[in-house]
C-alpha cells in the first residue's frame, strides 16, 4: 500500500480534526489570555483591553514572586522524592519476570482509574487529626504504653498527642508525590524496559558491583527516560492547583492557587492572565534547559 503520508490530501484530511480541535480549544483561548494579560481590570472587575505591562510588573512583585519561588521549591522537592521512590519502582517492574510485568504496571496506573478529587480527599482522611495515620499511631502508642506498664514503668510514654499532618507544606508534598509518581515511573519504565540487559551484565562481568553498575551504566543509559519523567512530574507539580488547595495550609499557596484566586474571588483576569504567562515562561525555560542538556550530551557522542 502507498504510504499515506505521501498523499498530501489524505494527510490534510486526517490531520484536520485534531488541528481544528487544538486551534479552537487551545490556541485561541491561549491567545485570548495573552491579550488579556496586557489589559486592565475595570471598576466592577470586568476586563478592559489595553496595552499595558502593569500586570507583568505586578506579577514580579515580592508576593507573587515569593509564591512562584515556593512553588518551584515544592515542585523540586516532590519531584526529587518521586525520583527516589520511582526509580526502584520502575526498575522493579522492568526487571520483573515477564508474567509479572503487566500486573505490576497495572498497579502503577490503577490510581488513574479513580477521580483525582476523590483520591486527594482520601489523603485528608488519612492525614487529618482524627485520621487513619494518627489512629494507627495512637494504637501503637497505647501498645507501647501498656508494654512499659508491664515492665513497671507506667506512664513513660506520656499522653498521646496526635500529629498535625494535614494543612501544611509536607501534606502538599505528600499529595504531589502520590499524584505524580506514575507520570515519572511510566517513561522511566519504558526506557528501562528497552535497555539491553547485557550492558548491566557486562558491567558486573568487568568487576563492578551493583551500585557502581547502577550509577555508571544504568543511570547514564536511561537518562532520556529519567529526564522525561522528572520533567513531567516537575511541570505537573509546578502548575498544580487541587493538591495545595485541599491539603495545604494558609501558607501553602502555590502559583496555581494564586492564578485561580485572580480568576475567581479577586475577579482580576488581566493579572491572572499575566501570572499564567509567567508560569508558562518558567515552564518553557525548564523545557529549554532540558533540550540544551540533551543536545549537548548527544553532541559529545557525535563529536568524540
Amino acid at each position: 500500500m502507498e504510504d499515506w503520508r505521501k498523499s498530501k490530501a489524505a494527510f490534510a484530511i486526517f490531520m484536520a480534526p485534531a488541528t481544528f480541535w487544538l486551534l479552537l480549544f487551545f490556541t485561541v483561548p491561549l491567545a485570548i489570555i495573552w491579550v488579556y494579560s496586557f489589559g486592565e481590570r475595570g471598576p466592577q472587575g470586568q476586563t478592559e483591553l489595553a496595552v499595558s505591562l502593569e500586570n507583568y510588573a505586578r506579577a514580579v512583585e515580592w508576593i507573587p514572586l515569593k509564591i512562584l519561588w515556593k512553588s518551584l521549591w515544592i515542585a523540586t522537592i516532590s519531584t526529587v522524592i518521586c525520583l527516589l521512590l520511582g526509580f526502584p519502582l520502575a526498575m522493579g517492574v522492568a526487571f520483573a519476570p515477564k508474567r509479572w510485568k503487566n500486573p505490576l504496571l497495572l498497579i502503577v496506573i490503577l490510581p488513574f482509574w479513580t477521580n483525582l478529587l476523590i483520591r486527594t480527599y482520601a489523603w485528608i482522611a488519612i492525614l487529618r487529626i482524627s485520621g487513619f495515620l494518627n489512629f494507627g499511631l495512637e494504637w501503637a502508642h497505647g501498645l507501647l504504653d501498656a508494654g512499659f506498664g508491664v515492665i513497671g514503668m507506667p506512664g513513660l510514654m506520656g499522653e498521646f498527642q496526635p500529629l498535625e499532618l494535614l494543612y501544611n507544606n509536607s501534606a502538599v508534598i505528600v499529595g504531589l508525590v502520590y499524584v505524580n509518581l506514575p507520570f515519572l515511573v511510566l517513561p522511566l519504565y519504558a526506557t528501562l524496559e528497552k535497555l539491553d540487559k547485557s550492558y548491566l551484565e557486562a558491567s558486573l562481568d568487568l568487576g563492578a558491583g551493583q551500585w557502581r553498575t547502577f550509577f555508571s551504566v544504568t543511570v547514564p543509559l536511561t537518562m532520556p527516560g529519567i529526564a522525561s519523567g522528572v520533567l513531567l512530574a516537575f511541570i505537573l507539580s509546578l502548575g498544580t492547583f487541587l493538591t495545595p488547595d485541599l491539603l495545604g495550609g494558609t501558607d501553602s499557596m502555590m502559583i496555581g492557587n494564586l492564578i485561580a484566586q485572580e480568576f475567581g474571588p479577586s475577579r482580576d483576569w488581566p493579572f491572572g492572565s499575566a501570572l499564567s504567562f509567567v508560569l508558562m515562561y518558567v515552564t518553557f525555560f525548564v523545557l529549554w534547559l532540558r533540550a540544551t542538556v540533551a543536545s549537548r550530551s548527544s553532541g559529545v557522542g557525535e563529536a568524540g
Binding site: 547485557s198 550492558y199 562481568d205 563492578a208 543509559l221
Partner: peptide, 25 residues
Amino acid sequence: NMVFQSYAVFPHMTVLDNVAYGLKV
C-alpha cells in the same frame, strides 16, 4: 570475562573509557 554476543560496548563512554572501565571499578 565475557565477550557478549551483542558486544555490550557501553555507548556512553569513549573506546578508551570502555576498555579502562573494568580496571577503574
